[in-house]
């Protein structure tokens, strides 16, 4: 590279960044290599998740990027995924779901409004035979070995789908894969996926228990269960206290009590009305380091 004599430009601290940049470039003229220029990163196109409060928090899922939704069981990950898929199929996009643990429920998806005709469902998990093993052998190492084949399939299938192109959303559902196994996925795989989707309009969505793509993810959303709604007594359960307490909606319903009547044999779907979840944006394309306190709550209701 040829050396260039650079005259330091006069910088006024109050000037905007863009004007400063233009002044530096004009002073250097042709001598500044384009590779050294700071490029303004355009805001990515986003797709809505279909949940208004969540979209207000994260601004939608970025296209051409890897997004992660992490949370334990019953944290609303699948509900968010189905809402996103429903919104995408409503836009006539073709989506793919790589199901690592073969846990996708088509009935739930149809109830969520997903057009199943536009969803390619890949069932990766080849159910392993029940392992007759001692308690000691049920270590995390053994679990990782058991899910290794499924993860390998997931990675290969995802590679094929991203190479094929044309999908609006590709979902990798690792929701039931143990954290130890998911973390064994090499970082190079996530880099490869990120590079593969970058020039496309595909949203690569990863469902998992704990974030594992690290810096490759443009968006990391962490979900937690917050409350369970039970309609028979209009109560919701506060998981922190492991017991039913009265909700704000049940102020006028004195006498329902904190305990569910044991003789109350009714339609169970009427008993469970829904759940409320807490969402936190750990990393976002819109905000490089979002404050950890940033979070919203959203509800998912049973499809009666």
């Amino acid at each position: 590279m040829s050396s260039v004599a650079v005259t330091p430009p006069k910088v006024s601290f109050g000037s905007p960044r863009s004007s400063l940049r233009s002044r530096i470039e004009s002073s250097l003229g042709e001598g500044l290599s384009s590779t050294l220029l700071l490029r303004e990163r355009a805001a990515p196109l986003t797709v809505p998740t279909g949940i208004a409060t969540l979209d207000a928090l994260i601004g939608g899922l970025p296209r051409g990027a890897l997004s992660e939704i992490a949370g334990p069981s019953s944290s609303g990950r699948t509900g968010v995924m189905l809402a996103t898929l429903a919104a995408a199929t409503r836009r006539e996009e073709v989506c793919a779901l790589v199901d690592a643990s073969d846990s996708f429920d088509p009935a739930s998806a149809a109830a969520a409004g997903v057009n199943l005709e536009r969803l390619l469902w890949v069932r990766c998990h080849e159910r392993l035979k029940p392992q007759v093993a001692s308690v000691k052998s049920r270590s995390s190492t053994n679990a990782g070995f058991a899910f290794g084949a499924a993860l390998e399939q997931v990675l290969k299938v995802t590679d094929l789908l991203l190479q094929g192109g044309g999908f609006g959303i590709v979902v990798l559902d690792l929701g039931d894969i143990p954290v130890e196994s998911a973390r064994r996925v090499p970082l190079t795989s996530w880099f490869r996926f990120r590079r593969a989707v970058e020039p496309t309009a595909t949203v690569l969505l990863l469902l998992e228990q704990e974030p594992c793509a690290r810096t490759c993810a443009s968006l990391v959303l962490r979900l937690q269960p917050e409350a369970i709604f039970a309609s028979n007594s209009t109560t919701f359960l506060d998981p922190d206290q492991l017991g039913p307490i009265l909700s704000s909606h049940s102020v006028g319903l004195a006498g329902t009590g904190p305990h569910i009547p044991k003789s109350n044999v009714v339609n169970h779907a009427a008993l469970l009305r829904g759940m409320r979840f807490r969402a936190k944006a750990v990393r976002s394309w819109a905000q490089r380091k979002p404050p950890q306190s940033t979070g919203i709550s959203f509800e998912l209701r049973t499809a009666l």
Binding site: E92, D102, D105, A111, G175, E299, L300, T302
Partner: peptide
């Protein structure tokens, strides 16, 4: 890939009434 344009997909009733997406299930197979 469906060749023709699909008919308008009706959202689930629950979604329309409460504006809440339905609770999803994950099956054990």
């Amino acid at each position: 890939v469906p060749a023709d344009h699909p008919k308008t997909i009706l959202s689930p009733t629950m979604w329309n009434v409460n504006n809440h997406p339905p609770l999803a299930m994950r099956l054990f197979r």
